[in-house]
């Protein structure tokens, strides 16, 4: 998280603020998200703090009557697992996806 780094902009979204020099050579991992819809209580922690903005809230309700996260951009998850760590309901997790190519990083 960026708080310890100098002059972090005051924003409500955690953002990439530094582009690594070897960004074009680094193989970016990909994650596959698993969402256990009926555990979700709609806190939005995952949607808010996903550094890749992968998630959005559903229009549908789960059995508890909450909107839940769904994957907005299927390939964008980099398996950082921040959503999994923050989720207070143990309702979302990522597993690393086996990669064929890789190599480019657009951020």
């Amino acid at each position: 998280m960026p708080q310890d780094l100098p002059s972090t902009p005051k924003s409500t979204k955690m953002k990439y603020w530094r582009k690594p020099l070897d960004a074009d050579k680094v193989k970016v991992p990909h994650g596959e998200l698993h969402i256990i819809v009926n555990r979700c209580k709609g806190c939005l922690f995952c949607v808010e703090y996903c550094p890749r903005d992968v998630l959005q809230m559903s229009e549908d309700f789960n059995v508890k009557g909450y909107h839940y996260p769904e994957v907005k951009e299927d390939d964008a998850c980099v398996n950082c697992q921040l959503c999994e760590l923050l989720c207070p309901e143990f309702a979302i997790f990522c597993v690393e996806k086996e990669e064929e190519g890789g190599g480019e990083n657009e951020s």
């Binding site: 998200l33 698993h34 969402i35 256990i36 819809v37 009926n38 769904e70 994957v71």
Partner: peptide, 8 residues
């Protein structure tokens, strides 16, 4: 969204 990533 993809079906396989959302599970009940």
């Amino acid at each position: 969204m993809t079906k396989e990533t959302t599970v009940t």
